[in-house]
Nucleic acid binder design. Structure first.
Length: 414
RNA sequence: GUGGCUGUAGCUCAGUUGGUUAGAGCACUAGAUUGUGGAUCUAGGGGUCGUGGGUUCAAAUCCCAUCAGCCACCCCA
């Protein structure tokens, strides 16, 4: 379109867009605080191996979606494609191993080199939470409850659905993987080209293929629960019982798997049908092996991330700016008084608008345009009497208010 | 990365079988209205017709390429 356009898959967030997204992030932060989660902000780029090592060599994110570049010192750096790896790294780097359990909230931009479409950008934004150091399923329940409350406070409670599954512990998962591969290998002629490739790299993902041929094969495939050992089964049961006790509705989805390698046990997604093919709005699970894999002490973890763009597209209007009071000095002699008055209002916590020029009519128009709740008019007549004309911009009613009581009067008015 | 659809003013869109200075509504600016906004009327500003090339006497219109957006796949937030 224009000669100067933003990089593909990036977007300028102007005013309303920014406010909508800020509302999502603010809601997330505020609700997380109710659960005792404090904010952590890690850099937007890391050494490449922070992601390459943790996300799995076969994941799409690592193989084709990372923004990786070499800096002037020759180090390979990568713009973070997700938040968990950076937080795990920060946990180790900062010696937070002494402060377990740790509950954190984060928020910020992520980067993935993908083909953009609605609800999918190359730079997008996420909110997320992580709990480190709690191996019990209570943490899974807590994290899901927290996510559900954020969605509810955004007004999305009945437009999303919680889908949940368990991937089991390492032993269960390995056992299942073997039986699954054995089964699928016997049905190779029914599988799509994509799935044949997945058979080696990540056979679990064939389970949620959209290919009709694959679906037919998968329909007869062995299910995860049959390979589950007692510990894994008990863990998952506790999670489900907790959700039920909290009246958080869910549907079991045995085909729900994770794209990233570090997940085990609980996997869940909040999904919607409102965003076309981009149905996932919040997704997470348990990742007990991650910290150790990165070189830290064995530390269990569970968390989720949610797409701010996707949520804000569903959540509607952002938080509006406060309606200002328009300060309108009439005549050159009263400009200084107007400036002083606007200054006093602002310092008292009242939003004030002061036009840079114009006569009374023009300034009234501006007051209307900026949505002022009231106009304070000060001309020679008012100044001589030590008052200002206060006009309610909604009702049109006017009254005289003493100048020295103006701030208090406006503070009291809603 | 693969396939399909679409690009005309800030926004939503018209523009006939190719034809001369590319239009409308909304928005914006000014005036009607020199101490009173919203409504109305009038006038005005604003366009490399996504970009580059080609065909033609002539291209917003036809052809090719490219870029971007959208949709589906892959995958995901």
């Amino acid at each position: 379109m224009a000669a100067l356009s933003p990089v593909r898959g990036t977007k300028d967030l102007i005013f309303d867009d920014a406010r909508r997204m800020r509302r999502v992030a603010d809601t997330g932060r505020a609700v997380a605080a109710l659960y005792g989660y404090d904010e952590i902000a890690t850099p937007v780029f890391e050494f490449t191996n922070v992601f390459a090592r943790t996300l799995g060599d076969t994941s799409d994110i690592v193989t084709k979606e990372m923004y990786t570049f070499e800096d002037k010192g020759g180090d390979s750096l990568t713009l973070r494609p997700e938040g968990t790896a950076g937080i795990a790294r920060a946990f180790i780097s900062n010696g937070l191993t002494q402060d377990l359990p740790l509950r954190v909230f984060y928020q910020g931009p992520m980067f993935r080199y993908e083909r953009p479409q609605k609800g999918r950008m190359r730079q997008f934004h996420q909110i997320g939470v992580e709990v480190l150091g709690i191996a019990q399923p209570q943490a899974d329940i807590e994290v899901i409850a927290l996510g559900a409350q954020i969605l509810a406070e955004l007004g999305l409670g009945d437009r999303v659905q919680l889908e949940i599954n368990t991937l089991g512990d390492t032993a269960s998962r390995a056992a299942y993987r073997d039986t699954l591969v054995a089964y699928l290998s016997g049905h190779k002629d029914g599988l799509s080209e994509d799935s044949l490739a997945r058979l080696d790299r990540n056979p679990m993902r064939i389970l949620d293929s959209k290919d009709e041929g694959d679906k037919a094969v998968v329909a007869g495939a062995p299910v995860m629960s049959d390979s589950m050992n007692d510990e894994s089964r008990a863990f998952f049961d506790t999670v489900l019982e907790g959700l039920t006790a909290l009246d958080i509705p869910f549907v079991l989805n045995p085909k729900l798997v994770r794209g990233l390698d570090y997940y085990g046990h609980t996997a869940f997604e909040f999904t919607t049908t409102d965003l076309g093919a981009q149905g996932t709005v919040m997704a997470g699970g348990r990742y007990d092996g991650l910290i150790k894999q990165m070189g830290g002490p064995p530390t269990p973890g569970v968390g989720w991330a949610a797409g701010i763009e996707r949520l804000s597209m569903m959540a509607g209007e952002g938080t509006p700016l406060p309606r200002p009071v328009a300060v309108i000095p009439v005549g050159a002699d009263n400009q200084a008084l107007g400036l002083r008055l606007a200054h006093d209002l602002r310092r008292a916590g009242i939003a004030a608008d002061l036009a840079h020029s114009g006569n009374l009519g023009k300034r009234m128009k501006r007051a209307n345009k900026v949505g002022a709740r009231a106009a304070v008019i000060i001309g020679d007549d008012e100044r001589a009497r030590g008052v200002a004309t206060l006009r309610d911009m909604d009702s049109g009613e006017q009254s005289d208010v003493p100048l020295d009581g103006l701030v208090e009067t406006l503070k009291a008015a809603p």
